[in-house]
Structure formats: structure tokens, C-alpha cells
């Protein structure tokens, strides 16, 4: 399970809606509990560096990634995942998402339809390099959003 505190949850949602119809992206930081549950306390928005069509692709630069690792180490947090949006598409990982995905990370995807967040789901790679869904939750769920688990 991955749980976002209300602060990072709202920042992520606003980011996705502000950037629409492009794809947004960013890093998720927090702690992993001994039972494997993840609590996200901090979020960093990142510029989508994909050259060309940002409505269908996202990319994070190596320098932004290294900064994220440094930020985690300096603040005694773990870099636990990535979020990005799927404008006018469901929050299901695409083949583009799967081939570039890393083990361990949670991949939170926001489906944004016509500028409003429709639903959010989270995924992790299994040992066979296939995505499996994990439960996504937040302390302050917005009842206007349809949550799928």
C-alpha cells in the first residue's frame, strides 16, 4: 500500500491539472514501514524534459534524478517512487511505462480528463518485470474523485 499525506497529495493533483494537456511528473519521498507499506510525506515536482510531444510522453533528466537522490539522503527520506499523469487516458501503465520502469519504485499515475483528476492508481514491477497494482490511498480523499484500487 502507498499512502500520500494530504500536502503532497494536493500538490500532485494540482500539478497534474495545471500541466494538462501535457503529462506532468515528479518524485515521491517518505518512509517504508517494516510491513512494506509506504507513507509519502514529501513530493517534488519536476519539469517534463521530453523533447517533442509532452502530451503523450514524459522524461526526467539525469541531473534532476541525482538531485532527488541527494535530497532524500540529506533529509533522511527514501526516494520511493515517481508520479506522472495520463491526459485523457486511464491510469494504467503503458508499454512505454513498463520498459523504462525500475524495480522497487512505486509508479503513481493520475488520469486527468478535460483538466480534472479522474482517478489515481499506483503500480510496482514484480520480479518478472510486469506491473502489479498496489493500493493507493491518501489521508484526505477528495470525494469528487473516483478512486480505483
Amino acid at each position: 500500500m502507498i499512502e500520500l499525506e494530504s500536502g503532497p497529495f494536493h500538490i500532485m493533483k494540482i500539478h497534474a491539472e495545471k500541466i494538462f494537456p501535457d503529462e506532468c511528473c515528479g518524485f515521491l519521498f517518505g518512509k517504508e514501514e517494516s510491513n512494506g507499506n509506504r507513507k509519502i510525506s514529501t513530493l517534488k515536482e519536476v519539469e517534463n524534459a521530453k523533447p517533442g510531444d509532452k502530451r503523450r510522453r514524459f522524461e526526467i533528466t539525469g541531473k534532476d534524478y541525482m538531485q532527488a537522490e541527494r535530497f532524500a539522503a540529506e533529509n533522511n527520506l527514501s526516494l520511493l517512487g515517481i508520479y506522472h499523469s495520463h491526459p485523457n487516458h486511464p491510469a494504467i501503465p503503458s508499454e512505454h511505462d513498463r520498459v523504462a520502469a525500475q524495480p522497487f519504485f512505486s509508479y503513481v499515475i493520475l488520469s486527468v480528463r478535460d483538466g480534472k483528476t479522474d482517478h489515481i492508481r499506483s503500480w510496482r514491477l514484480n520480479d518478472d518485470a510486469q506491473f502489479e497494482e498496489e493500493i493507493f490511498t491518501s489521508a484526505q480523499l477528495n470525494p469528487s474523485i473516483t478512486w480505483q484500487q
Binding site: E23, C25, R57, Y65, H89, S94, H96, D97, A100, Y107
Partner: peptide, 11 residues
């Protein structure tokens, strides 16, 4: 030396 995974994807 930093090993940096590419972070990318899309719809």
C-alpha cells in the same frame, strides 16, 4: 560515478 536510471514513460 552515479548510476542513474532513466525515468520516462507515457500513454
Amino acid at each position: 560515478l552515479s548510476i542513474v536510471p532513466a525515468i520516462a514513460g507515457g500513454i
